[in-house]
Amino acid sequence: MCKVCNLTHQFKSNLAAAYVCPACQSILYKGVSYTQNKPEEAFRIFEDLTPFKLGSQLNFEEINYTFIGRYQFVLTNGNRNLWFLHANDEKVLYLLDQPGGYVICKKNPHTLKKSDYDFTLGRAFEFPETNKLFYLSSKQRNTMTRMEGEVFDIQSYNMSFDACDFANDKQFVFGLFFGRMNNDIYVGQRYHYSELKLLNMRKADG
């Protein structure tokens, strides 16, 4: 329950670390009681014309996923959403979304080796559990993170970090580099919007 506005929330994902109260933006950590301290607040999501919303559904590989949370990264060259998608049997999926670009991805369990921290554009990278080379196509700075719904990481994602895009002709990798040896790698594939099986989307006004 949110201490500030008394809204209650039932966590959907075991992976979620916190929930952002939609009313007051309080970050409510799972299993933490806020009887003593006022919870910290997340920056409120701003309008970026995404077609998705919390509660949207994606059918991917015959499994129905629900959009339960989002990070909205304010990168130096544009904004990008990382949606947190959850299926009933604790399956998890991530969807990167920026105007005209949709990447369904999974978190790579491996982190990038220290020796790979040479971010020269065009340089080829190998990622574990992928069988093709990826080329660094963009390195940006995340200057601010906004959040809504259930989120799985507050500490690392809610600060400045380097965000890199790696791509080849088939796949896409989004790398978040929080510091030496501390990184999250999302590996996925781009889709055209018409290829996504979606339900409960945002509707255009008027």
């Binding site: 409120r44 701003f46 309008e47 945002r202 509707k203 255009a204 006004d205 008027g206």
Partner: peptide, 14 residues
């Protein structure tokens, strides 16, 4: 001012 995300994709702002 910054518009707040809603469940409706809004019309143009100014």
């Amino acid at each position: 001012e910054i518009a707040v995300q809603s469940h409706i994709i809004p019309l143009p702002n100014q």
